[in-house]
């Protein structure tokens, strides 16, 4: 999930949203003209891989944990956000935002791109699948067989992503609830990509192989006014299971922690609030603020008790709205690797 609703709401690129508790009544169109997530909606692929311009926000989010031919761990992020300025569905009223990053054990490189819809500079088509902004793209015959490319001033990468299992629906068959108040999104993932490719850095090229995770999510609703940020993890465990979890921090202290356990065959098992426990144990000083880069994650239901630690603690994204995003290693009852994202640390 990674609850980027708030992130985008804060993005300032869009009119400050009127944060209101809309409750469960929000079936059908909301008062400001955007479509709202519907619990009875069923995805239809590949059409739903494409954009949903009736919704305010949407993203195509790829994170990859990779091993280089030098034996080091590398992380790659590729994100394309779509923001509607107005509920017109007009391409010119859509703003596209791209984020890309490479993390190594000793560095973090990032880039950011903006484009307006209708300019030909950015967009997404479902068949054949192609998501792009400028020269960055996630494209292939279909979303289970794509190449991923992006670059910045200090890095570039070209990766091939293959998955042989179906997409995993998050939450209630793709309807993902964001708070006890019922704010929600449509959300599915592909956590089973096998990756190979190349990362170019100033120090030279590195051949990499590993795993990648795609998140697809769209919504029109922000978080509640009291939710201040979130901590999100996606873990590839060595036994083949996957774990996605997030903690929505609430100013009231009433954090909302949920997630999904995904078995090796791709069967999702969503958690009830309270199943998963995430608590920070290591902090790092980054960009003038303290950010938790080491976590204790406990999931008694699956006998899991692990430490999740950043590969490179300074994996900071100093973008228009800054946040932390980087690869992590997992140790404890289970081992593995994954990605951590944290927002709202001031």
């Amino acid at each position: 999930m990674n609850a980027k609703t708030l992130f985008l709401a804060v993005m300032l690129l869009i009119t400050p949203l009127v944060v209101s508790a809309q409750g469960f009544a929000g079936m059908g169109a909301s008062s400001d003209g955007y479509a709202l997530p519907d619990r009875d909606n069923r995805f239809s692929f590949p059409a739903d891989h494409g954009p949903h311009p009736g919704f305010r926000i949407e993203w195509w989010y790829v994170t990859a944990t990779l091993t280089g031919d030098d034996g080091e761990t590398y992380g790659v992020q590729w994100t394309l956000f779509r923001n509607a300025l107005r509920p017109t569905r007009d391409p010119a009223d859509q703003i596209w935002l791209g984020h890309a990053a490479v993390s190594t054990p000793s560095g973090h490189f990032h880039a950011e791109r903006l484009a307006r819809g209708g300019s030909g500079q950015a967009g997404v088509t479902a068949v054949p699948f192609r998501a792009e902004i400028d020269e960055w793209s996630l494209a292939g015959p279909n979303l289970n067989n794509v190449t991923l490319t992006a670059q910045g001033t200090e890095f570039a990468y070209d990766l091939s992503l293959r998955a042989d299992r179906p997409f995993v629906l998050q939450g209630d068959r793709g309807f993902s609830q964001k708070s006890a108040l019922g704010l929600a999104s449509h959300y599915y993932s592909q956590p089973f990509y096998a990756v190979q490719g190349n990362i170019s850095l100033a120090s030279g090229d590195v051949r990499v192989t590993g795993q990648a995770w795609l998140d697809r999510e769209w919504s029109s609703q922000p978080l509640t006014a009291t939710q201040t940020g979130w901590d999100w993890i996606s873990l590839h465990l060595d036994d083949g299971n996957k774990l996605m979890g997030y903690r929505l921090r609430d100013a009231s202290g009433d954090d909302y922690v949920v997630g999904t356990w995904i078995t090796p065959d791709g069967t999702p098992a969503p958690f009830a609030p309270g199943d998963l426990k995430m608590s920070p144990n290591t902090w790092a000083r980054i960009a003038g603020r303290d950010v938790p880069v080491g976590w204790r994650v406990v999931l008694p239901k699956h006998d899991l008790e692990v430490s999740v630690n950043a590969v490179y603690p300074q994996s900071w994204m100093p973008t228009i709205v800054p946040y932390w995003e980087g690869p992590v290693t997992v140790s404890g009852t289970h081992s593995g690797r994954g990605y951590l994202e944290m927002t709202g640390y001031e």
Partner: peptide
């Protein structure tokens, strides 16, 4: 405008 897009897609900011 097509030239602009072509430049952006060619990696020119």
């Amino acid at each position: 405008p097509e030239t602009f897009v072509a430049l952006r897609q060619g990696g020119w900011l």
